[in-house]
């Protein structure tokens, strides 16, 4: 069953045509990687799935994006309800100026959960799910800024998981991390597949190969190729893809 479906998506920043005629289906509980050179539109595309581009003035979208067969750009869609079910992790760890506990509890609180004991239990669950619990269980009250970069990023993943979305969007989640932290985050992404549909934007092709089931290659606002990761990396159909993954690309 298709979790996400993009139909004839075109996207504009002012007059700049940033995404061109993109069609894509993403199945439930898979990891999909978006790759491509900088400025190819992969992040822009990712940010359409939780309507994050709404925040940028003078942008518009043609086409449809369906999640669970619902057009999320239809009139009357509550954006915050949508974002509750589509979590997002950003390029740089961006914890709030709050304690570790409150960072994870934030999503619950802003969506109206008042039951403290439930929140406590949920924070523990998600921190365990993000493989962070053992490292932070004694300092939940401390500021999130006291954590290392890798820990902060896993905290941000936990924060996104806490409201139990069905989709997780990750915008280059490991690009600001050292190799050891990156390995931990990648391990976590593989785990997440059990419960979530994960879309990850990455610059790092090994990373795409390691964590994803399917890969989409973008170039200059177009989706050039989309398919099984194994096939894309071993036997790409398009020459542009071939050149990019073999590193012979500007």
């Amino acid at each position: 069953m298709n979790k996400i479906e993009a139909i004839d998506v075109n996207f504009f920043y002012g007059k700049f045509h940033a995404l061109k005629d993109i069609n894509m289906q993403i199945e439930e509980r898979t990891v999909v990687a978006f790759i491509g050179p900088s400025g190819c539109g992969k992040s822009t595309f990712l940010r359409l799935f939780n309507r994050m581009n709404d925040l940028i003035p003078d942008t518009h979208l043609h086409g449809q994006i369906l999640i669970d067969n619902q057009d999320i750009y239809q009139k009357g869609v509550a954006v915050d309800e949508l974002r509750k079910s589509v979590g997002m992790v950003f390029q740089r760890p961006n914890p709030f100026p709050k304690s570790i506990f409150e960072n994870v509890a934030y999503g619950l609180r802003v969506n109206g959960v008042k039951d403290e004991s439930f929140i406590r239990q949920r924070v523990e669950e998600t921190l365990k799910g993000a493989a962070l619990w053992d490292e932070v269980k004694d300092k939940l009250k401390q500021s999130a800024f006291a954590l290392s970069g890798g820990q902060q990023q896993r905290l941000c993943i936990a924060r996104a998981m806490a409201i139990s979305p069905s989709i997780l969007l990750m915008d280059e989640p490991a690009s600001a991390l050292d190799p050891i932290s990156t390995a931990k985050v990648e391990e976590l992404i593989r785990q997440l597949k059990k419960d979530y549909t994960v879309i990850i934007v990455t610059h790092n092709m090994q990373q795409a190969a390691r964590v994803s089931d399917k890969t989409a290659y973008f170039y200059l606002g177009e989706m050039i190729e989309y398919g099984e990761t194994k096939r894309i990396f071993t036997n790409p159909e398009k020459e542009s893809t071939q050149r990019y993954i073999t590193g012979r690309f500007g």
């Binding site: 509550a78 915050d80 509750k84 969506n111 109206g112 959960v113 008042k114």
Partner: peptide, 14 residues
């Protein structure tokens, strides 16, 4: 399941 309050989103908006 997370015990979300009903209509919280509308209340928030209001």
């Amino acid at each position: 399941m997370i015990p979300y309050k009903k209509n919280y989103s509308t209340r928030k908006k209001r």
